[in-house]
Design a protein around this nucleic acid. Structure first.
Lengths: 332, 332
DNA sequence: GCTCTAATTTGGAGCGCTCTAATGGTGTAG
DNA sequence: CTACACCATTAGAGCGCTCCAAATTAGAGC
């Protein structure tokens, strides 16, 4: 498995190593005759440049480090997809690590990624403390995605969660709802922003906000819905769920309780994951442009890698409402 | 952002570069006194070894190349998760590329991954032609996952699709079904194996196989179900779908047609993706141990990287049935 | 204190490549 | 025919590290 090196190609083509290097990098100051000779020799030997040696010698990197908190979550997978798209187009490679929302493990992952001296580092929904991120940013450009954060010198890409929540509320009010509840996403900064957006939108319509603490999971949605049914009193006619899986969890509890959707209760999700688009589910939801977020993150990193030293950019991407079958006018 | 090098640490600690190298690699033949001096100097300078330089000098790699055909598909994401788990434990890093099932793009991705001279290459459900894989296998250990293939010198990890299909049929026959249909996954080799497993199981029970050509998508399931309803005649009482999303597509069409599940028709999926576990969906399905497949693939690669030159291993992982709410005895 | 051996430490070559500065060759003008 | 550009080509140093062999030091035994 010993692959040929530049010296082998040079010998075979009867030229110097430097010339082979020039040809491999597509230099224009190489005569056509030599270029062909080199190309032929390379093809014959099955030669391809050694990316690491190249990187070391040129003191540049074509690696983009990516730390994903949770790869199961299709939300992140699609962001990675967007990053990958730009990386391929710009000639970068992705080196990936997962963090599993474990702080120690994520800290370690950041260290390992940095040991490759990547051109940039993307942290997707990572839970690492801000100071770790700030440290990393001293060694490599860093972009934090899907986690609202203000860290000196660190770029961010997020969706406008306040707007997203407002879109959901406006839609529900628009079709006639007034008792609209929110199952929130817990204590993350993104959840806080959505919660505040929901509350502000409600008040803007002269309505009273009503929040149940929940989390970004299926089980969380079920629990919140169950609690809602147990507490008795007048039920809301609509629920703005923390995200799609949370909404689906709530839907199943409502169905078990004999409530019709959307006649008895409307439900809006958040994320527009593939799940919500399934005809069987047909969840009205707020779309976060995930691939776009990934592309933005990658572009930011690529620009930084190319020398952009401007101050930290905090990108806000615009969510949009996708109306499907789980929302409609309240009964009566 | 110029990070310190080994020479800087050596100078600060008052030792040679070679000694710093030994300390960094955790050698035992270093006196405690020097070790501390080096460690202190390194900490003070914020030094961490340059992974690429190390790799180049030692002629070893800690990189595992991973080509994923489709990251959106949670099926693959979970395999990557398994690979990642082993990689972390064994001190390897993942370098990731997506192929999008486009042959040219995947071919290019393989080339790019190989340019890093990885310790191994994992191809997850990749569509690249066998000869490309065989070529790659000459330069690096290769393991093909979720794609039954017999290529000289290439290890594989797959689930036993024949068994999986049989589990589904046996379960349905066990609760009383006799008219059991299969929506297949198209012309991939995995789909063929499941199809044949289904047919064999049916015949083993003295039943007639009945296959509708479909594909591994939501829309495919809808289309197959619609065609089934249109063709009239006696409907089957159960369907073994190509996979989970295919099953969910079928479920929605059956629901629209007023068919009760499982009373009028039972449906079994395949994969046991998170989707099927949602209480709202509660799909009976065949579980493929994805994380386990990823771990197996990674272990295979790690062993090969460590010198195992044994002949190609074709690992078959055992699927299992997960009974939920979409299957039950046929009416009457 | 001295020798011998084992334990540490170090110099230096080299991994496969890039990059700068210098070389040689060609064509043109004088 | 010589000088001068200008171009393609090359030598050689060096990227940050490992690894081998050689050098030094420490420890043990007498």
């Amino acid at each position: 498995m010993a692959r040929p090196t530049m010296a082998d190609v040079a010998a075979k083509a009867g030229v110097s190593r430097a010339l082979v290097s020039l040809v491999m990098r597509g230099s224009e100051k190489v005569s056509e005759r030599r270029r062909q000779a080199v190309l032929d020799a390379a093809a014959e030997l099955g030669y391809a440049p050694h990316a690491m040696a190249r990187s070391l010698a040129s003191r540049t990197s074509t690696l983009l480090g990516v730390l994903v908190s949770d790869l199961h979550n299709p939300f992140f997978a699609e962001i990675v997809d967007g990053i990958d798209e730009v990386a391929r187009a710009e000639g970068f490679e992705l080196i990936l690590n997962t963090g599993g929302l474990d702080v120690e493990r994520e800290r370690d992952a950041v260290t390992r990624l940095l040991s490759f001296r990547p051109a940039g580092l993307a942290l997707l929904g990572a839970a690492v403390p801000a100071d770790v991120i700030a440290d990393a940013a001293r060694e490599s450009p860093v972009v934090v995605v899907a986690r609202p954060a203000r860290i000196a010198g660190v770029d961010t890409v997020n969706d406008d969660g306040g707007l997203g929540a407002r879109l959901a509320v406006d839609h529900l009010v628009g079709v006639g709802h007034t008792r609209i509840m929110h199952f929130d996403g817990g204590k993350t900064s993104e959840a806080r922003i959505r919660r505040e957006g929901y509350a502000a939108a409600m008040r803007a319509h002269g309505l009273r906000p009503d929040v149940v603490r929940s989390e970004y999971t299926d089980a969380g949605g079920e629990k919140a819905a169950a609690r809602l049914l147990e507490r008795g009193g007048t039920l809301p006619t609509a629920v703005v769920a923390a995200n799609d899986v949370n909404a689906v969890g709530a839907l199943s509890v409502f169905a078990d309780a004999g409530l019709g959707v959307p006649d008895d209760i409307s439900v809006v999700g958040y994320d527009n994951t593939a799940l919500s688009g399934l005809r069987h589910v047909a969840l009205t939801t707020v779309d976060q442009p995930r691939a776009e977020m990934g592309r933005l993150a990658a572009h930011t990193l690529v620009e930084r890698a190319r020398g952009d030293r401007g101050k930290a950019r905090r990108r806000l991407v615009t969510p949009s409402l996708v109306v499907r079958a789980t929302t409609g006018p309240p009964r009566g």
